[in-house]
Every structure is written in C-alpha cells, then in structure tokens.
Write a protein that binds this DNA or RNA. Structure first.
Lengths: 191, 191, 191, 191
DNA sequence: GATGAATGAGCATTCATTCAT
DNA sequence: AATGAATGAATGCTCATTCAT
C-alpha cells in the first residue's frame, strides 16, 4: 500500500512540519503538534525519528546542510565580502531553530560532523573575504559562525516586529566585522 | 532550621540559586532544582514566590534594576562612548537570564515598568554618545537594548569557553555601533 | 495492552470506576485512585477525560441521562404517584454521586442542559401525580428534584448499613409528599 | 503577657472562625484561612488543635453539645411533637457543618460519646412525641437523627436560595414523620 | 504562648515513548 | 507501514504539620 516513495515523502512532510512548529512555538512544542501539522499519526513520527532529539537533530542537519551548500557555492565568488554578507542574510532568513543552543546540545554524531563541515565552509569563505580586505584582519570563521544567529535571536524576541527588521541588526554586526575603524579584538576565538 | 531573620537571606539565596540554575539550564529548569541548589525545600520557593512566573519576574526586576542604576550613574559621564561600552560590559558580565525573551514574556507589571525605565535610561546614554560622535548617527537606545544580550547568548551556547570570551564579541558588536565605516542602516528600529 | 476496540470499553471501565470511587470516597478522591480501580494507568484517564472536571461532568451526564430516560418512560403511566415513587427508588439505587452539589458545581454546558431536561421531565411526572391527587397540592417537580438525593446522602453517611436501608427513608420522605395530612408549605420553591 | 483567659478567648475565636469558614467554603478550606479569619497566626491554630481533624471534631462536639442541650431542655415540653419540630428547626438554622459525614468520619472519642448523648436525647424526645401520637408509630430517634441534616444539605446545594427556604423542606420531611396517612416503614432503623 | 517560615507529601496535568492492531 | 491508545515520569502548585524564635 505504502511504497518506499511515500515513506520518503512522509519524512519530508514531518521535517517541514517540525520546522514550522518549532519555529512558531519553540522546541518545547509537543510531538503531537508536529504530527497534527503533518497530518500524520504520532506513531509515525516515532517510526521516522525514534526520539524527539533525533527529529531535532535531523532538522539541524537539514538546516546546516543548506548552509554548507550555500557556503560552498559562494566560496569562489569574486567579491568575498559580499558573499559573506549574502551567506549571513540567508542564514537570517531561515527563521528555523538554528540556535546554537541546538547546534550545541544536539549530541547526534551526524549533526556534529555537519557542524564541522559548516565551520570549514564558513572559514574558507571568511578567509577569502579577510584576504580581500573585506573583513577585519582579526576575525575568523568561528567568530562569524557564532555571530550568525544574532539576527535570528533578536527576531525571536520580537514576535510582532516587521519581518525584515533583522536586516538592521545584521547590518550593525556586519559593520562590526569590516576592517574600517576596527579596534583589535581581545582573546583568540578558541575552538 | 531558619530564623525569622534568615527569611530575608533565604529570599536572596533563592534568587541567586534561581539565577544560576536558569542561566545554566534555561527557564525550563524545574523549581525543585532551584530549591535543591539553594539547599531549601520546594515549598519554600513557593512561599517566597507564589508562582514560578513570579520568581522569574523578580529575577528580571532585580537584574533590570541593576542595569537601570548603572545606566543612570553613567549618564553624566564625560566620555559617553566609553560609558555605553562600560554599560554593555556590565550587562555581559551578569550571566543571568537577561534574555529579551524574558523581558518580553514576563507579564509582570512591575517588570514591565522596569523595562520602560531601562529603555529610557539606555536611550539617554546612547543619545549622549551619539551626540558626542562616539556612536554612529543612525543607532538608537532601542537598538542597543536589543544587542545588549548578544554576548550573553553567545556565551550560553559555549559552556566550556573561557569566561572572558564575551569581550571578543562585545568588541565586534561595539565596533559595529561606532561611526567609523558605518553603512546606513535599513528600517527604523520601531517600538 | 489494549486494542482499538477496547478503548470504548476502557471509557466505560473508567466511568464506572470513577462512579464507585467518588461514591465511596467523595469527589476529592484522586484521579490515580480511579485509574487504579480501573486497572489502568493514570495517563489513560486523562486521555479519555482531559480534565477531572470533564470526568465528573461525564458521570453526571450519564447519570442524569438515565434519570431523564426513566422519567420520560414513566410519564404516561396510569398511576402517576406510583411512577414518582418508582422514579425516586431508581434514583436511590444509583449510588453514584448524584449530589446536587455536583449538578450545581459542574459547569459543563452539556451537563447543564441535561439538568434542564431532568427538571422538565420530573416536573411533568410530578404534575401528573399531583393532578391525580397522589401528591400534595403544593409540591412541585423542583421540590422532588431537591429531595431526590436524600436517601443517597443518608446512605453515604452510613457505610456499614444494610444496602436496602434507603427504602426506609425514601418511604418517610414520600409520605411527606402525599396529600394525606399535609400541612401547607411555606415559601415558594423558587428557581 | 497572655493570660489563661486569653487562651480561652482564642479557642472560642478559632472555633467560630472555623465554623464560618467551613460553612462558607467547605471543610476543605485551608487552616490558614481559618487563622486569618480569626486574626491569629497559623501556628496558634495548631497549638489549640494539634490536627485539623481535631479542630473539626471540636466543632462537631460544640455543635452536638448545643443540640443535646436543646433536646434536653425540650424533653419535658407539653407538646412533644412541637418540641421535635422546634429541635429540627434549630438544627436546620445552624448552617455549620453538621453533616453526618462529619459525625461519621470524625473518629474523635469525645465526639463519638457526644453523638451517643445526642442519640439518647433525641430518642427521648421522639419517644414522647410518638407516645403522644404526634409522630408515626414506626419512627425512632435514630431515624430523626438521620433526617435531621436534610434541610441543611439541600441548602448547601442552593447557595443562592433565600435563607429560609429550608423551612419548606423541613415541613415536607416533618409531614412524613406525622402519623396521618403514614404507610408502614420497611426495615428496622438498625444501629 | 504566639508567630510565621520551612518542609514534603499529594494532586492535576503534560508529554515522550511503547506497542497492539 | 501507520495509527492512536496506554503508560508513567516529571512538573507546578497546595496545604497540613513542625519548629525556631
């Protein structure tokens, strides 16, 4: 009755339902809400993701994968500074739960590996931009990764704000990453 | 076990236990964990704060009060730019849960009033700094309020980082607030 | 442990377990006691009745429905006086919690509607009996409704009494409803 | 500072506060509400009544004592039937928690003894009335004791009714106790 | 003797997870 | 493979009771 293809479709259905639900109501939203939003039974969620944490991890992997792909696409761009800005804008537009809390608390191996990939991809991007003089000399990919979520977190705290307001705060942060008027940074970024 | 006089001390005990617990494990940490950390019974928490929300609100009020007081102290400073930086450094050092999510979700009246005070105090500070040319011309107190939590949020995601790492990210954000090399900001900050 | 079909049975199981438990220990009996008596988990109670109040309301509706049905069956009886007595006997045999406190405090809409039905049905029954001269001229359906629980309440206070003792007290009350030797009643019954 | 007399006064204060509180909000009202109503500390309640049950028992004893005293006063009355009616009216006017549930569930020895006294006093009263032909020949003091609370229980279920409505239901019950038109009662009243 | 702070058992309710169908 | 019923651990909160002052 249900083909392999249906299973794949359901998995996607669940992932996007979960992304919406968690973005809207936080990760504490019950699994049942995700199931309802997907039009599926609660049991089906657990068939695909044995644990709620697994579902969250899959979401993170999905999201990080998209970011890695974009970063890799952008890594050869002429204007590396613009590329970094585009990357950060893309990240900000994904309202999903790209909190680093997640990146951090999700213990999933695959997720961890993906984060490593992301770190390398962003670092490449940032290194280019720094070398081109588009970013301050003392900033690293890790720094950018850590600042990546700032617009999202601000927006999460302002549920009624106009949807593009994040651009304002990304602009400020990005100005802080530029070489003009940069004051030397304390501490190394560490691992 | 505790005398009448210790009741006051217990309230403080509870507030700081709650601050630690919530900073470490998020607001979803159970009241029982707060009680255990304070070395008190669960019921005692509810004697002092009839509701979990009341406890959170008290925490917010406490914290915001400290920030308002500092902002008011700093408002007359010669170097207003340095004053803003000092204010942000102080805010970052308070590891407590000064998430805007809290500031926003706490429905307590007193807390709301305190937040209004904070907004006014920061705005005064920022206005001075802007007028002195220490901050970019298009930044407002509200913007600073929203960016105030960035170092804390980054640190929360990095539980094993060296304790002063926040200085690095505050430095970047603050460079973004300076007038040198500032690119005009999109959107008004709105209320 | 239970099939889809047993879910219906479980609802009944829970209702009768609750009826017994509440009749025996009062409505303040914990839900866990109801669950235990039904041989089910505490969570299962909440699956079927989202709230303790919902469970109580369902019980009331069930009970009142049975009474309404009987009253409607009896309304055409030849001997309306005997019909009223039969009705009251049936009500007394249902040990359940047909306290008016419940009828009153249950805020459930459906329950309220059912009580209206009951009042109308009893009133019809009583009106007939009064017209036939089987009841005193100054008694109403509302009065009978209010006296309906007397035997139950007496029995609840006498847990060790012989199970049919209620008949004695119903007999006394019913004699008080007869026209013979009736002294005029003070106050109207009011709504 | 506090004399023996104050202690006695406080005991009375507490008893009447408890009577009011429990009559108004049910026996589940917290001890703290009783203390507040009495204008005393919670601890003081427990000094006088080591247990909430003790307080309730004391209330019952108080109440039953009043009833016993009245019954004894009335036992020599000319019109014994009128005396029984007066006794029942007095009982109905005491809105307090004279539920038999209490009489039954209170395990206090003194309370039990007092109930024995009450039973004997009522029985004497009822015996006289029966002998005078004012009550049906098959009714006993125990029956009257059990029916004594009916008006109270009906009123408890009708919080908004006019305060004298109980007279209507006492009248019905009392008519049921009269010899006119009495149908023989089933079952002995038992102990 | 009086007070109110502290305590923990008890209760309603939610939700991740398991499993029979 | 999908479903939703059953389950119990966890949580916020209330309240009788104890006890230091």
């Amino acid at each position: 009755m249900s083909s392999r293809a249906d299973a794949v479709r359901n998995r996607e259905l669940l992932l996007s339902a979960a992304a919406e639900e968690f973005a809207e109501n936080g990760v504490d939203a019950p699994i049942s809400a995700v199931a309802r939003r997907a039009g599926l039974g609660k049991g089906t969620v657990f068939r695909h993701f044995p644990t709620k944490d697994d579902l969250v991890a899959a979401l993170v992997v999905d999201h990080v994968t998209r970011l890695v792909d974009l970063a890799n696409d952008l890594v050869g761009a002429e204007d590396a500074g613009a590329a970094v800005l585009e990357f950060l804008s893309f990240a900000a537009r994904q309202r999903q739960l790209l909190d680093i809390p997640f990146l951090a608390h999700v213990s999933d191996e695959v997720a961890a590996r993906k984060q490593g990939e992301l770190e390398r991809a962003i670092t490449a991007l940032v290194d280019h931009a720094r070398e081109q003089g588009a970013l301050r000399p003392d900033v690293t990919g890790i720094d950018v990764m850590r600042l990546m979520c700032v617009p999202n977190e601000i927006m999460r705290n302002l549920p009624d704000a106009q949807p593009d307001l994040w651009e304002r705060y990304l602009a400020i942060v990005f100005d802080g990453l530029r070489p003009e008027g940069a004051h030397p940074l304390p501490h190394p970024p560490a691992a």
